[in-house]
């Protein structure tokens, strides 16, 4: 089992090195599912790591590409299946922008995701928030990291 995970991680590492060519969403998915390999159905861990809580955006873009929409479709299905009545969308920008604009950009990304959930028919409460470029998840200084930071993260609000 452990060996298996290590193997998967190695594969993921290989994929990451090819990051520049691969589409970002596929990458994010692969890396996520390995981390959540043990997550049980209906848990936050499953939503975060197996469904995938993070949709990525192109530089300066605030609308999702097809892979991003497909991910949100899966998120929506999970939210409905487990009767989640409140979510929060955190929008983020990469470090290659100025601070104030990035706050607005992150907010606009979060808003895009919110609108998409509404268009799917989500009836729960959706709050949005922007962190601008203040909370990166990938810290290197090249395009493979910046693309991971241009993101909107769906957070299940538990009461």
């Amino acid at each position: 089992m452990t060996l298996n995970i290590v193997k998967k991680l190695m594969v993921a590492g290989l994929l990451l090195t090819l990051a520049a060519c691969a589409t970002q969403n596929e990458l994010g998915q692969d890396a996520s599912s390995i981390l959540g390999a043990d997550a049980k159905p209906g848990t936050i861990a499953e939503f975060t790591h197996i469904v995938g809580d993070t949709v990525l955006f192109e530089t300066n873009q605030t609308s999702m590409n097809d892979a991003g929409k497909a991910l949100l479709d899966r998120q929506y299905a999970w939210l409905v299946q487990y009767g989640v009545s409140e979510i929060k969308i955190d929008g983020h920008a990469d470090e290659r922008g100025t601070r104030q604009y990035n706050i607005a950009l992150g907010a606009k990304r979060a808003s895009s995701v919110k609108k998409y959930f509404v268009s799917l028919g989500y009836s729960g409460t959706i709050k949005t928030l922007s962190f601008g470029k203040e909370r990166p998840v990938s810290l290197c200084d090249n395009i493979s990291c910046w693309s991971q930071n241009r993101r909107a993260v769906t957070v299940v609000v538990t009461k």
Binding site: T62, A104, A107, K108, S111, S112, K114, K115, T128, S130
Partner: peptide, 9 residues
Amino acid sequence: MSLQNDDTA
């Protein structure tokens, strides 16, 4: 200041 309203500021 800027005020955000969904996708506009």
